[in-house]
Design a protein around this nucleic acid. Structure first.
Lengths: 164, 164
DNA sequence: TCATATCCCACGAAAACCCATTGTATCCCC
DNA sequence: GGGGATACAATGGGTTTTCGTGGGATATGA
């Protein structure tokens, strides 16, 4: 699977400006452009954390293909069919694809801004196959997040001069 | 696994300059470039010592694949999913990948400089699959470190003319 | 018309790049 | 084996490029 040769890693804290724009950190864009040649990211609500998951279109296609294969094998009864429909909708209806401009910025769609509870700071976290976009305050308040990771969030906030 | 045919070994003490740059010892770079063809290293806080762990991207990918396989097998309940997410974040969000230039130097990211408590001297220690980067003073003050190893650190410090 | 999105330019800080110097280990030839 | 030349490693410093960010101007559509 060529799509996964390059993994998202690292962290950064960027500003969401008055127009709702955010810079995607350059080191993440590098991975996106090495995986495919798109200058676009796909956004979705994370399935277990109060944040957004993001990835490149090539990865979306890869995930879709995997789901299809799974479905063809385990075709058993009506429940399976419903589950398939649900997953399919989540994968496509509940996501948005947004392009980034020449300076590497996206315009966060209002719905995603709401779903991810983003304020005027966006914390980017590499997560291997995908990356996450957090409201840093929510991350600090989540007790499922390891302390070492919260330290990173605090460091990024300090770096920027913000209190906390 | 081809990635582990070559192991990191040896020690060296290099300066961290005013810009935060350090030379990666040539004998470590040799291993990195034999394992893959990248000219980058991945930095992370060591999980039990007050220092940094470092390795090449190929090794990171190898570790990731191992984690994925583990996860697909032991898929049991929601707790397992959270644990997986936590490990994944620690492996990718809490690490940084940095390239080294033609003269073999990296720029130590400020966060890593803090996490590893590095001053203006960096002690490199080969550790087989990975290598470590220490503040030499912290190594000398750690009672879990064997005396023979501390002797090496003292020798490297003397070599450089530094006191201690 | 107003609000919203896209494009463009501009700036400051930081990082990447290039070149120059030193010291040390290696090689070669006498 | 000694001595000089050579190659490479580590390091300092200056210059250029990139990145994140703000703001204005221009298009687009309700």
């Amino acid at each position: 699977m060529a799509a996964l040769e390059h993994l998202f890693q690292g962290s950064a804290l960027n500003a969401v400006d008055a127009k709702g724009r955010v810079s995607i950190p350059a080191f993440l864009r590098g991975v996106i452009e090495r995986r495919g040649d798109a200058r676009t990211i796909v956004l979705a609500k994370h399935e277990s954390f109060p944040c957004l998951t993001a990835y490149d279109p090539a990865y979306a296609a890869f995930k879709h293909a995997k789901l299809e294969r799974l479905n063809e094998k385990e075709e058993t009864g009506p429940d399976a069919a419903i589950e398939y429909q649900q997953r399919n909708l989540m994968a496509f209806a509940a996501t948005e694809e947004v392009p980034y401009d020449s300076s590497g910025r996206i315009l966060v769609p209002p719905m995603m801004r709401m779903k991810g509870k983003l304020g005027d700071l966006a914390l980017f976290l590499g997560a291997g196959e995908t990356f996450q976009i957090w409201n840093p305050e929510l991350l600090l308040g989540d007790d499922r997040i390891p302390d070492d990771l919260k330290d990173i969030a605090r460091f990024r906030l300090n770096e920027r001069g913000a209190a906390r």
